[in-house]
Nucleic acid binder design. Structure first.
Lengths: 195, 195
DNA sequence: GTCTATACCGCGATAGAC
DNA sequence: GTCTATCGCGGTATAGAC
């Protein structure tokens, strides 16, 4: 930290991304202008172009960072050979991770169509990578005879949709604690795969 | 049919709505211009205003018509006292209805935030009405002791999310027939509620 | 690193001819 | 019922001063 200079240079970048995340989630990428983002940060629109080459890159970077964190966080979990334990770990991790980042999750699902083709392909590859973790767990349980799933691929889609759906209604401080929500969903997941 | 005149007046309205449905689903409401919709129909943008007062009404009408058809179609199903039979009927109906209307479903979920508050409230009320049907089935099964669901409200959200998720991957002519998809999902639903 | 000023474009919507 | 023409606005992005 030898060089200090004006410290705002090191703080404005993150503030731009945070403002864009919030506004894109609330109003949608196409409906949000660079002027709005700038106003949220407290600068003029032209100043944003110090931190992103254009609006599209801003969207892509947000989605890419979100999915990278998802993959890294999941990879950091302790492994387990027991398919039931692994499925419970996945279920609880997914709910906790996603409810804590509702804006990024919303954007990552809703703004896919606003990505340029090359960016879309990269994001989709990361999403498939995450889904493959769940599918692998289901296939291990199938092979071990502890899960009753007629189709591991469909069960993967079904469970991911069900778990991500928590974000559409869960609010901190609501009727149920997150721990209780996790318990209830884990119970449904377990029954759904026939354990 | 006494009056004939130029018949295009009776056909352009539906074509405008069909074009808007397709384009909104593909690119998003905010990203689609009235000029694009007009080009799809083969008229000038100003001609659209014979069929809708403005762009917002076009979006609202599409969503309203979709949800009205959903509620009407569900109401037209034969009733049943058996909660298990009712849940199976709901599951198969939901998958069939939604996969057959993927554009409208996509819009009804993704464009909620682009509705003006009054329009949003009306659409949300219709969605809640549909969800209430499923919740009532779950509560009946709970009371009869045939379902093991710790929370009927959460189970409703979980099952709707799971079933609507079919739309994200199902394509006609793919690996599985729709009947097979219905079977697989009904199996997961049944197990999830503990039957 | 942020500003002002601006280029250039496309937006939703309306007026009025035919 | 569709057209052409147009209004007024706000969009992304850049140039160049400070």
């Amino acid at each position: 930290m030898a060089r200090k200079k004006n410290s705002s240079g090191e703080i404005t970048g993150p503030r731009v991304r945070a403002a864009a995340l919030r506004l894109f989630a609330r109003y949608g990428y196409a409906a949000v202008s660079m002027r709005q983002i700038a106003a949220e940060v407290g600068v003029q629109a032209s100043a944003l172009y110090r931190y992103t080459p254009d609006k599209q890159s801003l969207l892509f970077d947000l989605m890419q960072a979100h999915l990278a964190e998802l993959l890294d966080s999941y990879a950091a979990l302790p492994g387990t050979d027991d398919p039931v334990a692994a499925l419970e770990q996945f279920t609880r991790f997914h709910i906790r991770f996603h409810t804590a980042r509702s804006d990024a999750v919303f954007i990552a699902y809703m703004e896919l169509r606003n990505l340029e083709p090359a960016n879309f392909a990269r994001i989709e590859a990361m999403r498939r990578q995450y889904e493959a973790h769940l599918q692998a767990i289901l296939e291990r349980g199938q092979a071990a005879g502890v899960f009753a799933v007629p189709d591991a691929k469909l069960a993967t889609y079904a469970l991911i949709a069900m778990l991500t759906g928590v974000n559409t209604w869960y609010r901190e401080g609501g009727r149920l604690s997150l721990a209780r929500v996790e318990d209830i969903y884990w119970n449904m997941v377990r029954q759904a795969v026939g354990v």
